[in-house]
Amino acid sequence: MTQRPLASLSPTDAAPRATETSAARLSALRARLVTQAMEVIPRKHLSFGVHAVDGCLPGGGLGLGHLHEIAPEAEGDEPAALGFALALVARRLAEVPGEALLVLAKGHPMPYGHGLAGLGLDPDRLLLFEAGNDLDAYRALEEALRTGTGTSSGGLAAVAGLVDAGLPLIQSRRLHLAGGRTDRLLLVLRPVGADSPNVAATRWRIAAGKALRDRFGCIERPCWRVRLARCRNGRMGDWLLEWDHAAHRFGLAGALAGHPPETGGRGTGPGQP
């Protein structure tokens, strides 16, 4: 701000400068508002590649360096939420070199590397940290956001935390501040039913969806019912998204395309499309 301190004004020219000062102050305040608005919309994004989803998000994608909260919709949807978070990490890792850090608090099982490979995430590029409790998990996430910010090559590209309780306001503010300087994808996956007010830029609710079938009627791609429950400077939405692990791409599961009719059968018949 180019605001001049009042004490430096000499008493002789104080009167003519008074209006000028207030005008300058007003313009300075306006400039500050603009910069604050700029801070809200981050510089870089991770797009979903789906127009319907990106359109709801400010800037056309998940803001990098901003905090995003992911939660399962209901009890039993935890693997779907974990899969969605790791799919986002895989999409980020496909764009840039570097590694991803997954911080696991107590109560979260270790992901299975052979299964990660099936989701399109290279397990060799995934670093894991087992934190004893949520506090340690948040500390580790903060540390990961601070480490190696000076160098651009070979750093962390994504940081994801799996916490045991809800995302509290104070921790979310700390993470938001620490992440604001980086261009890392920052996700926090919390369990179901631990909703608490926080400063996350987006909040997602994930439920399992019927998997996409291939032409033999076998399960081909995972599919999730994705609900954007809150989005700062954006709109909310509800989609059925599929994940293509080979192309690292989300897709809008079309109306019944590739989905078997709801017959209640086992769906292994040869007549499936």
């Binding site: 850090l101 670093l127 580790a140 540390e143 000076g150 160098t151 750093g155």
Partner: peptide, 14 residues
Amino acid sequence: AGASGLADALRQRL
């Protein structure tokens, strides 16, 4: 840079 710095920092801090 990168993972080695992070590993050291986490080991010292946590």
